[in-house]
Design a protein around this nucleic acid. Structure first.
Lengths: 194, 194
DNA sequence: GTCTATAGTTTGATAGAC
DNA sequence: GTCTATCAAACTATAGAC
């Protein structure tokens, strides 16, 4: 019987795909890499994902989407003021980057950037992720008293800046870009203060 | 005789590599794609780049580095106040993205993200590009009266945010993220006003 | 659901004539 | 410097036994 906590083959495959694609991209990740990393045979991979590599990438992006959304929601719920949430969120991202020794960037963008043009399902999945994250940040800002338009606008820049800073941190192998992104986003949020 | 304005085979190959990798990434771009796009034979490609694909990618990243650096320098020189430069710069990036129908993102990041971990020369080239861009923005801010530390800090966030917003614009196929990045960075710069 | 074997392409790179 | 031909390896995907 399947319980909620059992990690089946399908889940292992999705996680392995997300982990590998966030480090090597879409084209750079082979199905044999995935089946090895997931400890599943190639037959099992195709059993769960008959659509092949594209279907796997879409599932991996969905996984990365939920992962970052969970982080965002947790931090937004924990921190009272949205400006504090910006700093805390940047710190979480910085810790993750450093702990992985600058290997684990954003699984969504690393996978989507190189394939968005030729593989529409992948681009669509990435677009859904961005919209999801944007909504979480926007809701926190409106809950803090921002008017709807300002909250939506600032949320867009928050998402863009976190993405860019994570990328910069990965390339430069320092948390500098993320630390500064957190404090500057906090400053931006505070600049709208009553 | 080689004049400054002649575009030789080597240049065509570098440009073709940059153009293709900014759309398809490092692994997604084949040497045959490059030789076809550059209208050069495979023999010519290896004649100029005996180091193969890695050497090609490093040259392509250097090309993308100079391209964005030129754009930054032009805008910084044209606009008097750095806040105006942020808006103008975002607008230039937005125009380029829209004109290419959301295909041409940043050649540096698209190439480097998926390969930085396993190919150090590529990561190093990308790191040099980030440092170069950072220096240009920082110098504009110090010239405008910012103290050295603040200028350097803000310049980091400017580069991160432009990168992230360009990526977001590419995925969402709207200039929204870039437009907002420009105006929010201008707001950030102005918040340090005397 | 899991496994092995393999088909059919494409890849990065090299050799050698011109 | 340019070109063609080709290698060995890797790739995505499928077939079919269990």
């Amino acid at each position: 019987m399947r319980t909620k906590h059992e990690v089946g083959t399908r889940d292992r495959v999705v996680r392995a795909t997300a982990r590998l694609m966030q480090r090597q991209g879409y084209t750079g990740t082979g199905l044999k890499d995935i089946s090895r990393e997931a400890e599943a045979t190639l037959g099992s991979v195709y059993h769960f994902f008959p659509g092949g590599k594209v279907e796997l990438a879409v599932a991996a992006i969905g996984h990365g989407d939920r992962e970052f959304a969970d982080l965002l929601r947790t931090v937004m719920a924990r921190e009272d003021h949205p400006a504090d949430a910006m700093v805390a969120c940047a710190r979480e991202l910085a810790t993750g980057m450093r702990d992985s020794e600058w290997m684990d960037g954003c699984p969504v963008t690393t996978t989507a950037l190189e394939s968005a043009r030729r593989l529409p399902p992948i681009r669509d999945a990435a677009e859904r992720a961005f919209a999801n994250w944007h909504g979480i940040v926007r809701d926190k800002l409106t809950a803090a008293g921002f008017d709807d338009d300002t909250a939506s606008d600032v949320a867009h820049t928050v998402v863009s800046t976190f993405q860019g800073a994570e990328m910069t941190a990965q390339i430069t192998r320092t948390t500098t870009a993320l630390d500064l992104a957190g404090s500057h986003l906090a400053r931006l949020v505070r600049s709208y203060r009553e």
